[in-house]
């Protein structure tokens, strides 16, 4: 039909690691094998390191690769109209990033010291290591994330906690002040998320709702008649709230793990870029 656009619409159902039959794993492997062979078979009489012809070659390739790998951060956010696949970029980012270990290490010729050059190398390894943690997280955590949420959205999880709070407030109306204090503890002092470490370590021992449930038990045991009925409802609601909190917190925990490695990966990338500039400038300055 006239006006029909030619578009690539369908992405194949393949994850970023398996993208196009492990294309970038293959490219990365060939690259590593190639440079290792070149390193092993270069003239044995020459000194090893960044100063040789091969060293310059590896250094240039490595530096360009680092800059290109860092540009993923821009690619991810720039939604342009033409065809591109972020998945392909990520796949290349992972495998070529790993290949950088070999390229970078051979570039050093195994000369290390307390200087800006080794700093750049160290930062590079830190970036790659944190990236590897990221790959592990991306490959394993989504399943748990999906299982835990069981179709509930974040908003719904929070709404469930809120509606349980409303029900608690309603249910607590007939209680005397002293018992109502326990409910207030759960209502006012419960923190859902907490700080980053708390999210990662899943340390919720000081949860106010948990404390409130504990405080309620002796009161519940001693109560009779109408008041016992009210307290039982309060107890049931607080336990429901504990379940809802557990689900929301687990979601927050997994999300924290999924993005936690980025807190190392991204800043160390910037540090690496700075160190890389220092390394290159100093090399050419003291040539």
């Amino acid at each position: 039909m006239a006006g029909q656009t030619q578009r690539r619409k369908r992405a194949t159902h393949e994850g970023f690691l398996r993208h196009r039959g492990f294309l970038f794993l293959k490219i990365g492997t060939v690259l590593c094998v190639g440079v290792t062979a070149a390193y092993l078979f270069q003239d044995q009489r020459l000194p090893r390191g960044g100063g040789t012809l091969l060293g310059y070659g590896l250094g240039t390739a490595g530096a360009l690769l680092i800059v290109w790998l860092a540009l993923l951060g821009v690619r991810k956010r720039a939604v342009t109209n033409g065809y591109y696949s972020l998945k392909a970029w990520v796949s290349a980012h992972v495998y070529l990033g790993l290949a950088l270990i070999v390229i970078g290490t051979l570039h050093t010729g195994f000369h290390f010291g307390w200087n800006v050059h080794t700093l750049a190398y160290g930062l590079m390894m830190l970036v790659i290591t944190s990236g590897a943690v990221g790959v592990w997280a991306y490959a394993t955590l989504p399943k748990t994330l999906s299982d835990n949420r069981a179709e509930a959205t974040r908003k719904q999880m929070l709404a469930r906690i809120r509606s349980l709070d409303e029900a608690l407030l309603d249910a607590a109306q007939p209680l005397p002040r002293i018992d109502a204090e326990i409910v207030r503890l759960s209502l006012e002092k419960t923190e859902i998320a907490g700080g980053y470490w708390q999210r990662v370590m899943q340390n919720w021992d000081n949860c106010a709702n948990k404390a409130a449930i504990a405080q309620l038990q002796p009161v519940l045991a001693g109560a009779t008649g109408q008041q016992a009925a009210v307290l039982r409802r309060v107890d049931a609601l607080m336990r429901d709230k504990a379940d809802a909190l557990a689900q929301a917190r687990k979601q927050i925990h997994i999300t924290a793990l999924l993005e936690g490695w980025l807190f190392v990966h991204v800043p160390s990338t910037f540090a690496l870029l700075a160190a890389l500039v220092a390394h290159i400038v100093s090399v050419f300055l003291y040539w």
């Binding site: 619409k9 369908r10 992405a11 393949e14 994850g15 939604v79 991306y138």
Partner: peptide, 25 residues
Amino acid sequence: IGKAGGPACVRACPTGAAIRVSPEE
């Protein structure tokens, strides 16, 4: 519509989780 690259949601998925399909295929 009209964007040469096709649906942005699929292009911008970093892990390949988002796919667009038609029922026949």
